[in-house]
Simulated assay, not measured.
Amino acid sequence: MTNSKQNKSKKILVAFYSRDGHTRKVAKLIAKRLNADIDEIEDKKPRKGLIGFLIAGYDATRGKTTEITFSKDPSDYEIVILGSPVWNGRLTPAVRTYLLENKEKIKKACFFVTCGIKGGKALTQMHEIYGGEVLGEKVVARKNLEEEARRFAEELKSMI
């Protein structure tokens, strides 16, 4: 069986939160390459503008959760690929909340984070909260967003 046939037989979800579009772009690219469903996690707390940006970094640093909405049930999928921006070197409150609310529903996971240079503690925090089997992970630097996203999708194809 070829990798593309294997991927089509597995039900995959790419769930993500994106404040300013970088993580959304990566998530869409991965979902397209893996023929996966996609679900955007929405943070109900205002995060736009300078004040929103400062509060976002503070909330991430403090490990806070937030009120979120999303539309797809992760328990309907064999693999959930979860993406988040990195805020102040840490996981966003929206993805922290998603993992806390859904970690028992996620059978197998892959993680990616988007950031300027380094992922900081974000991937480690995702692992700690989830606690289950993680098939792959990637820090996607914004300077090579599309290239790194494509490369990660190809790596995932061979893993899943």
Rank of each mutant, 00 (worst) to 15 (best):
Ser4His: 13
Ser4Asn: 14
Lys5Trp: 07
Lys5Gly: 14
Asn7Leu: 15
Lys8Gln: 09
Lys8Cys: 06
Lys10His: 12
Lys10Tyr: 06
Lys10Glu: 15
Ile12Cys: 11
Ile12Ala: 04
Leu13Ser: 09
Ala15Leu: 08
Tyr17Thr: 13
Asp20Met: 13
Asp20Leu: 13
Thr23Ser: 06
Arg24Val: 02
Arg24Met: 13
Lys25Pro: 01
Ala27Asn: 04
Ala27Asp: 09
Ile30Thr: 12
Ile30Met: 03
Lys32His: 07
Arg33Ala: 13
Asn35Ser: 14
Ile38Asn: 01
Asp39Trp: 05
Asp39Cys: 07
Lys45Gln: 11
Lys45Leu: 05
Arg47Pro: 07
Arg47Asp: 08
Lys48Pro: 05
Gly49Asn: 10
Leu50Ala: 05
Ile51Ser: 14
Gly52Gln: 13
Leu54Cys: 07
Ile55Cys: 02
Ile55Ala: 07
Ala56Cys: 05
Tyr58Asn: 12
Ala60Thr: 03
Ala60Asn: 01
Ala60Gln: 02
Arg62Thr: 00
Thr65Trp: 01
Thr65Glu: 15
Ser71Met: 12
Lys72Leu: 15
Asp73Gly: 09
Asp73Met: 10
Ser75Ala: 15
Ser75Tyr: 04
Tyr77Ser: 12
Tyr77Cys: 14
Glu78Gly: 13
Glu78Tyr: 08
Glu78Arg: 14
Glu78Trp: 12
Leu82Phe: 02
Gly83Lys: 10
Gly83Phe: 07
Ser84Thr: 06
Ser84Phe: 00
Val86Ser: 01
Asn88Gln: 10
Asn88Lys: 11
Asn88Tyr: 08
Gly89Glu: 03
Gly89Asn: 09
Thr92Trp: 11
Pro93Asn: 07
Ala94Gln: 14
Val95Phe: 03
Arg96Ala: 11
Tyr98Asn: 09
Tyr98Arg: 12
Leu99Val: 03
Leu100Gln: 15
Glu101Thr: 06
Asn102Leu: 09
Glu104Val: 12
Glu104Asn: 11
Lys105Asn: 14
Lys105Ile: 03
Lys105Cys: 13
Ile106His: 03
Ala109Trp: 04
Cys110Lys: 07
Cys110Trp: 02
Val113Lys: 01
Cys115Ile: 02
Gly116Val: 07
Lys118Trp: 01
Gly119Lys: 00
Ala122Glu: 03
Gln125Ala: 00
His127Tyr: 05
Gly131Thr: 10
Gly131Met: 06
Gly132His: 04
Glu133Pro: 02
Val134Gln: 04
Val134Asn: 07
Leu135Phe: 04
Leu135Arg: 10
Gly136Thr: 05
Gly136Cys: 06
Gly136Ile: 04
Lys138Ser: 07
Val139Pro: 00
Val139Arg: 00
Arg142Ala: 10
Leu145Gln: 08
Leu145Pro: 01
Leu145Thr: 01
Glu147Gln: 07
Glu148Gly: 02
Arg151Asn: 12
Arg151Pro: 08
Phe152Ala: 03
Ala153His: 08
Ala153Arg: 09
Glu155Leu: 06
Lys157Leu: 14
Lys157Arg: 15
Lys157Met: 12
Met159Trp: 04
Ile160Cys: 13
